[in-house]
Computed example of a mutant assay.
Amino acid sequence: MLIDAANLYFRAFYAIPDTVTAPDGRPVNAIRGFLDMSASLIDKRRPTRWVACLDLDWRPAFRVELVPSYKAHRVARDGGEEVPDLLSPQVPVLLEVLTAFGLAAAGAEGFEADDVMAALAHRETSSAGDTVEVVSGDRDMLALASDRVTVLYTGKGIAKLEAMGPDEVQHKYGVPAQYYADFAVLRGDPSDGLPGVPGVGEKTAAALVTRFGPVEDIVAAAQDGDTGFPSGSAGRIRAALDYLAVAPGAVRGRVDAPVDDLDDALPVEPRDPQRLAELATEFGLESPVERLTKAVATALA
């Protein structure tokens, strides 16, 4: 199970009031929510391996160079990511709790969590490894869906997870899962600052990737005068050649992200029980740590 860590702790922060605090008054709503959601996922899905995937760079330079508008609307005045003041101090504590518990976390310098998940999923499925579940609220991750990868989409919350394999992606969006990123490039995605091709909407984008495949093949067909284009769309593709030459590299997950090897097995017992107990007491996390402990024990039973 590969978790988009930021997706979960942002979701937890906004779902749980910041009046949920440690004994000394520091907010712990994101930490408590993350631990409880992780416990629920582990209890329901029973993975034997688990990784919290981190954004070591939430807006990588290589993506901004390709598409300057990439996530531009999320940039704070100081040039960093807009993160609530009460959330930022909770993230290091959460990671320390995971470390003490023995749950793996992974990132790659210069890359997003999406890239970490893509790299780890690719590493697993290109060998005789386990099947993979990817937990994310980013629809771009649907491109990972395959016969060995299921995307657990969190758009409606952890209690209403959508388990998306290739059939589900095809049914819901009308596109083959492996071309979902190409579909997004064509129709655009305001949440990522991705402009899309002017005049190409969702239906046309779906029709193009279904007929031709990836963006590169769509461009080649448009330049070759293929007659299989919906009305007017070939001209729109040709008018957007500069954008289409670079946008796929900004949207597709980087399976080559340099993620270190790690011990991602669910721990039979906490790695550092003393430190875990200290953190639980200091931040008032006894109950969520206990729930997580029970969930892990259930998954390993």
Rank of each mutant, 00 (worst) to 15 (best):
D4C: 03
L8F: 12
R11N: 04
F13C: 09
P17Q: 09
V20G: 05
V20Y: 02
T21D: 08
G25M: 13
R26V: 15
L35C: 07
S40V: 13
W50T: 13
W50N: 15
C53S: 07
L56H: 08
D57Q: 10
Y70P: 02
H73P: 10
R77K: 13
D78V: 06
G79K: 07
G80D: 11
L86W: 06
P89H: 00
V91W: 00
V93D: 01
L94R: 09
L95T: 05
E96P: 00
L103P: 02
A106N: 00
A108G: 01
E112G: 06
A121S: 09
D130N: 14
D130H: 13
T131S: 13
E133H: 09
V134L: 04
G137E: 02
M141A: 14
L144W: 01
A145E: 15
V149A: 02
V149Q: 00
G165Y: 02
G165V: 02
A177M: 04
L186V: 06
D192I: 15
G196L: 10
V197R: 00
P198W: 04
K203P: 05
L208H: 00
V209P: 03
R211D: 08
F212N: 04
E216M: 14
D217A: 12
A220M: 04
A222N: 03
D224G: 14
G228H: 05
F229R: 13
S233Y: 02
A234Q: 06
R238L: 15
L241M: 10
A250Q: 07
A257T: 02
P267C: 13
R271Q: 12
L276C: 04
E278V: 08
A280L: 06
V289K: 04
L292A: 07
K294G: 09
K294H: 13
V296S: 03
A297W: 04
A299I: 05
